[in-house]
Design a protein around this nucleic acid. Structure first.
Lengths: 231, 231
DNA sequence: TCAAAAGTGTTTTCCTTACACCCATGC
DNA sequence: GCATGGGTGTAAGGAAAACACTTTTGA
């Protein structure tokens, strides 16, 4: 069995890039490390992948141990294997990313002594990061900037019921540009995958906006046509 | 150093999905294995990643040893780590893909005894493959189908000088659909990154078509605007 | 002269963009 | 009554799509 051939073994870890959206800002979840190397530094939640688990299972487990978060759908981003990315030798890491609805908790409780705390940081203002994690976050940002144009990831960052202005702010935060309100609404509503609710925003000191829901089924129906190209 | 912690070591390999285009068909390069497991089966060129090399270096080396090909620009596709993908235990593999100009050689000489020969196979008619390699090829195909719509990968499959019909055939082979000749030409020429040459096709028994070149510089200039969004 | 592929325009439809003012609400 | 964001329409331009016949060439 290959696992006996130690010269053909690699050190292999997984890192999680978890994005959230709050106060009009895109945020990323960082942990404060309690282990060498990079003890006391901020880093992405990440750890070794065990023999007995798939990579998907590993990132799920690692995220839970480092942040207490569970059942988060993560997607693979890229695998990094530069010789110098880890001070103690060549460590290959596979990065996963996810988008999350924030619910007010700005600090999360780790279930592991390897990290002290997990805190949301605005992507526009990150501390210095361990390893090549700044680079990994940059790559994740590129990825979600691409994806937001072709997939409904924006809705993963919002509560179930949201206003069109909130939705627009997500697009603006991720793309880093200002969008035209009328054009944005026209376009979104034309897609026909938003369900207008009979409810309005609560507790605002100005005209309350209508609430909408994202309709996954309609979205799937519309974009199953992904495969039906025109000539 | 981590490499001493054997329980935290993983078996890690790299596989190469190399596409080519010939006779109006998309082809993929497969090797006939001369090693267990899956001795005598067709498989993707792939092998262990060593401690001392980056992943990019590893795929370059492995491709050379298995096929004799060198200096091929490959891009990372995805990392696969299912528990059952390898009969001898959990082996993580990172897959890379590349697109190549074929030059007539349908069989390539391996520089390694691990494989017997490397042969181009039409993607529409593949033999049964070792491991999860059929799945990896499917994923690569999805990727290039996406990429061909937004990047100039089609030109990597063609000779330097090509006709518009040849170019159209590449798009049709990858997308798997028939395209309208007039619309295709109009669109391609409108992009302004094709340079019309003063040469024509040679040796055909019908009206010879004009030859074109892909102009990388113009392409880069036009699509640097990638970042300049409109409101 | 025939076979094979090259080459060519117009119309319609739809999406994108630009742009500015009134409305409802809470304080 | 004022500040704050909510909400709305139209015109112009450009890309995508549908669609069929003539021309060139070599055999």
């Amino acid at each position: 069995m290959y696992s006996k051939l130690t010269h053909l073994q690699s050190t292999f870890t997984a890192d999680c890039v978890i994005f959230g959206f709050e106060e009009g800002e895109l945020k990323v979840l960082l942990v404060e490390r309690n282990e060498y190397p990079y003890k006391d530094w901020w880093a992405l939640p990440g750890f070794f992948v065990e023999h007995s688990e798939t990579i998907d299972n590993a990132v799920e487990r690692i995220l839970y141990e480092h942040t207490g978060l569970r059942n988060i759908f993560m997607e693979q981003l890229y695998t990094f294997g530069d010789l110098k990315r880890h001070p103690q030798g060549r460590v290959i890491t596979v990065a996963y990313y996810a988008l999350l609805r924030l619910k007010g908790q700005s600090t999360l409780k780790p279930h592991s002594t390897y990290v002290r705390q997990a805190v949301w940081h605005p992507v526009e203002n990150l501390p210095e990061l361990a390893f090549d994690h700044a680079h990994i976050i940059d790559r994740s940002l590129e990825k979600i900037r691409q994806n937001i144009k072709s997939t409904p990831i924006a809705f993963e960052l919002l509560p179930e019921k949201f206003t069109l202005t909130q939705l627009q702010k997500v697009y603006e935060a991720i793309l880093g540009i200002a969008l035209d309100k009328r054009n944005f609404r026209k376009k979104m509503l034309n897609y026909n995958f938003l369900k207008e609710l009979d409810e309005k925003q609560q507790g605002v000191s100005y005209r309350a906006a209508k609430l909408y829901k994202f309709d996954k089924r309609k979205y799937a129906k519309i974009f199953q046509n992904d495969l039906s190209f025109k000539k």
